[in-house]
Design a protein around this nucleic acid. Structure first.
Length: 247
DNA sequence: CCAACGGCGTGCT
DNA sequence: AAGCACGCCGTTG
């Protein structure tokens, strides 16, 4: 078990000179994350696999998971890649990712998901549409269920359209914890959904948003209107927000 | 190639 | 209102 503080300090240390092995062999590491420690495997092009340690089990199981996916040798990584530790603390753009072996559809789904800001959530159906496959809602779920780099690609921010938080790799409890940590008011959103409100608009701007969009949060209660669908909002003269692009 | 399988959505009770 | 059945669709064995 690695001391989180020591692990963090290690990231600040001078990078070791790159050896040939650093370029050819992938490296594993164990670092602190928002739900406890995580294992990661990093290749020359970026992070290839990441798992919460509590979910992955022992290191051996994690490395076997990686080997079964890629069949490449793994050794301990000399250091964490730039941006990994800050990203796991919710800061920065995150480290480079190596998702090269995924299908184009899966890559697109993850790319769309990666753009959801912290503190906000979007439905699976929205991701499907943004990825250019509006009917592949369920397939989006399958892709996210196999997200090789959870936390870095924030699949916990994708939820069901009915207000339920939905499933998650390591269980709904983790998903809820991650979202609440980011300031998402799940109870409030569930109440909204239960009342049939999926979008909110401002009658001063005529714009409708997902409730967690930063524009939506600025609407004062006097000017706030809820809508069950974009069609209904449009019928009332509203247009979709250009930032959260409600569908 | 085909069939089964999901972190879903929706319409019907 | 909560639950269920069925449709959808990209992967995988």
């Amino acid at each position: 078990m690695t001391d989180p503080v020591l692990a963090a300090l290690r990231d600040l240390a001078e990078p070791a000179p790159a050896t040939l092995a650093d370029r050819v062999v992938d490296g594993w590491l164990r670092v602190p994350g928002p739900l406890g420690e995580v294992y990661a495997v990093v290749g020359a092009r970026g992070v290839r696999l990441l798992r919460p340690a509590a979910f992955a089990g022992e290191l051996d199981a994690f490395l076997e998971d990686y080997r079964s996916r890629h069949g490449r040798p793994v050794r301990p990584a000399p250091r964490a890649p730039r941006g990994l530790l800050p990203a796991l603390r919710g800061r920065g753009e995150g480290p480079a990712l190596d998702l090269g072996d995924l299908t184009p559809f899966a890559r697109e789904v993850l790319a769309v998901t990666a753009r959801i800001p912290a503190g906000q959530i979007r439905p699976y159906g929205w991701v499907a549409r943004e990825a250019g496959h509006p009917a592949a809602v369920r397939a989006v779920g399958t892709v996210l269920a196999r997200n090789p780099v959870p936390l870095l690609v924030p699949c916990h921010r994708v939820v069901r359209s009915d207000g339920d938080v939905g499933q998650y790799l390591s269980g709904r409890a983790d998903k809820v914890a991650l979202l609440e940590r980011e300031g998402v008011e799940l109870a409030h959103l569930e109440a909204l959904a239960a009342a049939g409100t999926r979008l909110v608009g401002s009658d001063t701007t005529g714009v409708v948003c997902f409730p967690t969009c930063h524009h939506a949060r600025r609407i004062t209660t006097a000017h706030r209107h809820g809508f069950p669908s974009l069609a209904r909002a449009r019928a009332a003269g509203y247009r979709p927000c250009r930032d959260c692009r409600p569908s």
